[in-house]
Simulated scan of single mutants.
Amino acid sequence: MKLQTNYMGLELRSPIVVSACTLSEKTENIVQMEDFGAGAVVLFSLFEEQIRKEEASYRGVMSETSYAFPEALDYFPDLDEFDIGTDEYLENIRKAKERVDIPVIASLNGITNEGWIDYSKQMEQAGADGIEVNIFFIPADISMPSAEVEQRYLSIIESIKQTVKIPIAVKLNPYFSAMGNMSLQMKNAGADALVLFNRFYQPDFDINELLIKTDLHYSESSEIRLPLLWIALLYGKVNLSLAATTGVQGSVEIIKYILAGADVAMTASSLYKNGIPYLKTMNRELEDWMYKMKFESIDSFKGIMSQQHIADPTAYERANYIKILERVK
């Protein structure tokens, strides 16, 4: 079976992509991911605010020390030589590109326009094959209108696209009021792919200590329905690559996402649970299913369950909700 697919202009040998996670902090892990069949790897995210925080901390130490002990300045490197996070990340890109042939996609989570532009440029120069723009922005200001929120995304995409030549994927959230139209606007702004969906931080409460809990759980297969819906609705209507990145625990979710129209399915939680070699298992199960269903390639079944290809397109809309209610009477 032919598992090759094209994701935002990059030729992949498999539609299974390792999503941004801490596993990719080690080059040896990335080599294993290639060995066990990953089509590409999205590196762990570079967070601009962490870099700014380290830089501010360094400046604070320098300022306080210089007043008390001027001679101590000899023991501190200049700020330009101080590793505030970017050097290590860029070196990780370079090392990975030296060791593997599969695409290595950088992941950037910025907070300032300068940061988006500068770090994107550095990632491209380090050899990244693409950049996943992780716009983790929660509009908590209730006075901020939706148009301003949308423009924030579009401005970021435009700024990065004018800076780099490598493809850009936008990891977006499911909370836009008009997802279809927003997808078109992102395409016009320069996006090459959409990654559905970002799992926003959602707090929980400790009712005994009266504290906000900051734990994070792995995604579950039951979470695929929302991205499955929007991939099936967007397929064939927006000229963008589509990636699914929620709830992929095995080959079943991968198959469903491709049937809906995804070019790739991204996973990290399944590797945390089962180990990096599980990539080989998912690829084999995907091939077995394709053989059973007589599909010779990924393209031969991609999108056949999307809205534009099924016999009853209303199955994705309100009419299907009514049918569900009628069945439970």
Rank of each mutant, 00 (worst) to 15 (best):
E326F: 07
W289Y: 12
I142S: 12
Q50S: 14
T314P: 03
D118Q: 03
S306W: 00
I102F: 11
A40V: 11
A178Y: 09
P145G: 02
A319S: 02
K53R: 11
I224F: 04
S146K: 08
E91N: 09
N109D: 10
V328M: 06
F301V: 05
A244Y: 02
Q308T: 14
Y89H: 10
Y153K: 14
S146F: 15
I135R: 14
E98V: 14
Q50P: 10
M62A: 09
S57M: 09
N134L: 05
L3M: 06
M293N: 04
V238K: 04
I156C: 14
G110E: 03
D83Y: 15
D215W: 04
E48C: 03
E81R: 09
D312A: 08
A265G: 12
P15N: 04
H217N: 12
P103N: 14
D129M: 13
Y7L: 14
A38N: 05
F76G: 07
D101S: 11
M282V: 06
S306I: 01
V17M: 12
Q307E: 06
E317Q: 14
V41L: 04
S45Q: 08
G85M: 10
S155N: 11
M179Q: 13
A191G: 04
G85H: 13
D118M: 10
G236M: 02
N113M: 13
I231R: 03
L259Y: 00
V17K: 06
D101F: 06
A106M: 03
L172V: 15
S24W: 06
K171A: 06
T245M: 03
I310D: 01
D206Y: 00
V31A: 10
L154M: 05
V149K: 05
T65Q: 13
M1W: 01
E88R: 06
Y175N: 10
G37M: 05
L12W: 05
I168E: 00
G261R: 09
N239K: 09
D288E: 01
G39C: 04
I322T: 11
L196Y: 06
G115L: 03
P167I: 00
A178V: 11
T112V: 09
A56T: 10
S270K: 02
F197V: 01
N283Q: 06
K237A: 04
M305L: 15
L79Q: 02
K280W: 08
G247K: 05
T267A: 08
V133D: 01
M1G: 07
V264F: 08
A40N: 03
L233A: 03
D312K: 03
P70A: 07
H309M: 00
I117F: 06
E287S: 06
E285I: 05
Y67C: 11
Y257D: 00
R284D: 15
P70K: 01
Y278E: 07
Q185E: 11
A189W: 04
L196F: 08
L12R: 10
D312E: 07
G115K: 03
Y201F: 10
A311W: 02
N198Y: 14
M123H: 00
L10Q: 02
E285H: 06
E91A: 13
E48D: 02
T22C: 15
I310N: 09
V31M: 04
E64Y: 07
I168N: 01
S143R: 05
A96N: 14
Q249D: 13
K280G: 08
G37L: 02
E11D: 07
V133G: 06
D263T: 11
I93E: 09
W116Q: 05
Y153A: 15
D312L: 05
P70I: 05
T314I: 13
Y218I: 15
I111C: 09
I157M: 04
V100S: 11
K2Q: 13
A262W: 00
